[in-house]
Design a protein around this nucleic acid. Structure first.
Lengths: 110, 110
DNA sequence: GAAAAAAGCAACCAAAAGGTTGCCTTTTTG
DNA sequence: CAAAAAGGCAACCTTTTGGTTGCTTTTTTC
């Protein structure tokens, strides 16, 4: 357990990152697979470029996007892994709930 | 569009509610189907009862739990709907991403 | 090579979040 | 029926968040 270079943060951080309208819309935009610069992403946002930058940093810390500086601009792209993890987290919660219901039903029908 | 009595909040609010370690653990605890009082939920938390109360209120506003006052205590229980919605939101994001990959692949292989 | 474009950096600010303590009300129980 | 248990309400405090403005740096383009 030593090399670890930028571990995917846990579900809490991912959910927190998704829990803001601006960030959620930035992410869903980027999930179309296209890579975009900060000015481009700020375009339809009525926020300042710097505000958008901050949101992108939050998304990046959560592992949801990755940025690469290319020339004078940094291109942001979607990273699917954390979403997959978050999804399976929710799946487990749902599963636990479903199990509980199942047991209850079995008990009642006995 | 008038009767609406306590609409399930959108995914943003749900994600925001999940984006805190205390709340996430409260919720996963409750997802076992058992109903619990505030003192019970505060028990293994090292937070004060009031702090837990606030977190439970956030969860409740997000529709993730429901509370019923029974006698001198209020019992909190899990509500599955918002989790289901959040899950399908993430599914849609993933699907959009997968589609993008698919199109890209098709383009390259042509 | 100077102007424009894109972005980084830093200070600052207001509002919201997360938490606490203190006190009051309502039920329960010995 | 008095004490204990569970909770509600409200004030208060500190840190984080979401946002701004202003200035510098790095590329690009004319």
């Amino acid at each position: 357990m030593s090399k670890r270079e930028l571990a995917d943060p846990g579900p809490v951080e991912v959910f927190a990152a998704l829990g803001d309208p601006t960030r959620l819309s930035l992410l869903t935009k980027l999930s179309d697979g296209q890579t975009r610069s900060i000015v481009t992403l700020s375009a339809d946002t009525n926020l300042t470029r710097q505000a958008v930058t901050k949101h992108l940093q939050v998304l990046e810390r959560a592992g949801l996007v990755r940025s690469v500086r290319v020339g004078r601009e940094s291109q942001f792209g979607y990273r699917p892994e954390p979403i997959t993890e978050a999804r399976s987290y929710l799946d487990r919660v749902s599963a636990q709930w479903d199990d509980a219901l199942e047991r209850l039903k079995a008990l009642v029908e006995r």
